[in-house]
Protein backbone atom coordinates (compact mmCIF):
# COMPACT_ATOMS: atom_id res chain seq x y z
CA UNK A 1 0.00 0.00 0.00
CA UNK A 2 1.43 3.36 -0.99
CA UNK A 3 1.12 6.45 1.12
CA UNK A 4 1.65 10.09 0.36
CA UNK A 5 5.33 10.95 0.59
CA UNK A 6 6.62 7.40 -0.04
CA UNK A 7 9.80 7.37 -2.12
CA UNK A 8 9.33 4.92 -4.99
CA UNK A 9 10.98 3.51 -8.07
CA UNK A 10 9.33 2.51 -11.32
CA UNK A 11 10.98 -0.87 -11.62
CA UNK A 12 9.18 -2.24 -14.68
CA UNK A 13 6.70 -1.44 -17.36
CA UNK A 14 3.13 -2.20 -16.46
CA UNK A 15 0.83 -4.32 -18.56
CA UNK A 16 -2.11 -2.29 -17.28
CA UNK A 17 -4.04 -0.22 -19.81
CA UNK A 18 -3.35 2.86 -17.65
CA UNK A 19 0.31 2.62 -18.69
CA UNK A 20 0.92 4.96 -21.65
CA UNK A 21 3.56 4.40 -24.35
CA UNK A 22 5.49 7.47 -23.31
CA UNK A 23 5.91 5.97 -19.82
CA UNK A 24 8.36 3.36 -21.16
CA UNK A 25 11.17 5.81 -20.58
CA UNK A 26 10.19 6.22 -16.92
CA UNK A 27 11.42 2.74 -15.98
CA UNK A 28 14.28 3.05 -13.48
CA UNK A 29 13.24 6.55 -12.42
CA UNK A 30 12.70 7.49 -8.79
CA UNK A 31 10.03 9.72 -7.35
CA UNK A 32 7.53 10.41 -4.59
CA UNK A 33 3.91 9.32 -4.24
CA UNK A 34 2.00 12.60 -4.21
CA UNK A 35 -1.60 11.36 -4.29
CA UNK A 36 -2.41 7.73 -3.60
CA UNK A 37 -6.02 6.68 -3.90
CA UNK A 38 -7.21 8.93 -1.08
CA UNK A 39 -10.69 7.39 -0.97
CA UNK A 40 -10.34 3.67 -0.48
CA UNK A 41 -6.68 2.77 -1.00
CA UNK A 42 -7.69 0.62 -3.93
CA UNK A 43 -4.60 -1.36 -5.02
CA UNK A 44 -6.00 -1.27 -8.54
CA UNK A 45 -6.31 2.53 -8.72
CA UNK A 46 -3.89 4.65 -10.73
CA UNK A 47 -1.91 6.69 -8.25
CA UNK A 48 -0.18 10.02 -8.66
CA UNK A 49 3.62 9.88 -8.60
CA UNK A 50 6.02 12.75 -9.10
CA UNK A 51 9.18 11.54 -10.83
CA UNK A 52 12.54 13.28 -10.71
CA UNK A 53 12.89 15.26 -13.99
CA UNK A 54 9.88 13.51 -15.53
CA UNK A 55 6.89 15.24 -14.01
CA UNK A 56 3.80 14.00 -12.23
CA UNK A 57 1.76 11.14 -13.65
CA UNK A 58 -1.04 8.70 -12.71
CA UNK A 59 0.62 5.30 -12.81
CA UNK A 60 -0.58 1.73 -12.18
CA UNK A 61 0.70 0.45 -8.84
CA UNK A 62 2.09 -2.87 -10.08
CA UNK A 63 5.14 -1.16 -11.59
CA UNK A 64 6.08 0.71 -8.43
CA UNK A 65 8.20 -0.35 -5.50
CA UNK A 66 9.03 1.54 -2.35
CA UNK A 67 12.61 2.70 -1.85
CA UNK A 68 14.14 2.19 1.57
CA UNK A 69 14.71 5.48 3.34
Amino acid sequence: MFRRGDKVEIFKKSEDEGWQDYMDEFVGFHGIVTDPDSNINDPDALIEVSLVDKGTHRIPQDCLRKLEE
Binding site: R4, G5, G31, I32, T34, D35, E48, S50, V52, T56
Partner: peptide, 8 residues
Protein backbone atom coordinates in the same frame (compact mmCIF):
# COMPACT_ATOMS: atom_id res chain seq x y z
CA UNK B 1 -4.34 21.97 -3.90
CA UNK B 2 -2.80 18.64 -2.94
CA UNK B 3 0.56 20.36 -3.72
CA UNK B 4 2.72 17.72 -5.41
CA UNK B 5 5.25 20.57 -5.88
CA UNK B 6 5.93 20.66 -2.15
CA UNK B 7 6.75 16.94 -2.10
CA UNK B 8 9.47 17.50 -4.69
Amino acid sequence: CTRPCEFM
